[in-house]
């Protein structure tokens, strides 16, 4: 399959990108989801705005107690240690298991999050962190808590005309406990169940259950959680069992 014809635009700055978006262009980051959708003609936009050349779109900055990850930072950069410290180690562990290296070389953290595929890795993992998605719109930046960013299947809290600019995450102490589990039969397969748990000192453990037919389920305080009660709404018995296993594994495994 080949895509239907579309115009290709490469904005040189953010105002130009926002203007393209206002004109109905479909933003493209690494193109690892949109590319196949174009080829299969599941998406037929009139115009695609390629964001990859925007200034500051990729890259990681430490700003005091926060780490700002440009939305265009690739999975491969994160895998290779672009994010410092304990947080970087956690994110690198997640990035390493995203699809295959060729996908990671082009795919981006922001593109993946904004695409909001329920089985995607960053969609499943980022809500566990007390951080924000930084949206850029015609009126400037606004911050959306990561736990509320993905609102449904392929749906986000981004308003029309807004772009995902960056992800802001806290610097984590070395004592932060983390556990992440996902089920794929082979690398590259979409996850059939993902869970993760972040326990910061002096804070309740935060847990996410994802790869569901809905937005990820975020539990702000997983203390005393009954995993079985959380999965009753999953109708397929195997998927229910996997979700249960995912929850049990991360509850046992946080280290």
């Amino acid at each position: 399959m080949k895509p239907a014809a579309f115009d290709y635009a490469r904005p040189a700055d953010w105002p130009a990108a926002l203007a393209l978006l206002a004109g109905g262009a479909r933003p493209m980051a690494g193109g690892q989801s949109l590319g196949p959708m174009l080829n299969l003609r599941l998406a037929q936009p009139e115009r695609v705005a390629d964001l990859r050349h925007l200034p500051g779109y990729a890259g990681v900055e430490v700003q005091g107690e926060a780490i700002r990850i440009g939305a265009g930072t690739t999975h491969a950069a994160i895998e290779d240690g672009a994010v410092p410290g304990r947080l970087g180690a956690i994110l690198a562990g997640v990035a390493r298991r995203i699809a295959y290296r060729p996908v990671r070389n082009r795919g981006t953290i922001g593109g993946s999050l904004a695409h909001a595929d329920p089985a995607a890795d960053w969609v499943a993992v980022l809500p566990a962190f007390p951080g924000h998605a930084v949206a850029l719109g015609p009126y400037g930046e606004r911050r959306i808590p990561l736990a509320r960013f993905v609102t449904g299947v392929f749906e986000t809290a981004l308003a029309p005309g807004e772009l995902l600019r960056a992800i802001e995450l806290p610097v984590l102490p070395e004592t932060a406990r983390w556990s992440h589990w996902k089920f794929c039969r082979k690398p590259g397969e979409f996850s059939k169940a993902t869970a993760c748990l972040l326990a910061l000192p002096d804070a309740p453990p935060r847990l996410v259950l994802a790869a569901l037919d809905t937005a990820p389920l975020v539990i702000e305080d997983a203390t005393g959680l009954d995993p079985a009660a959380l999965v009753t709404s999953i109708s397929d018995p195997w998927r229910r069992r996997l979700a249960l296993t995912a929850l049990r594994r991360v509850l046992e495994g946080a280290a």
Partner: peptide, 14 residues
């Protein structure tokens, strides 16, 4: 199964 994401083939790791 219209793509190789749905139709699983064994790869090097399998």
């Amino acid at each position: 199964a219209g793509t190789l994401a749905d139709y699983l083939l064994p790869g090097a790791t399998e």
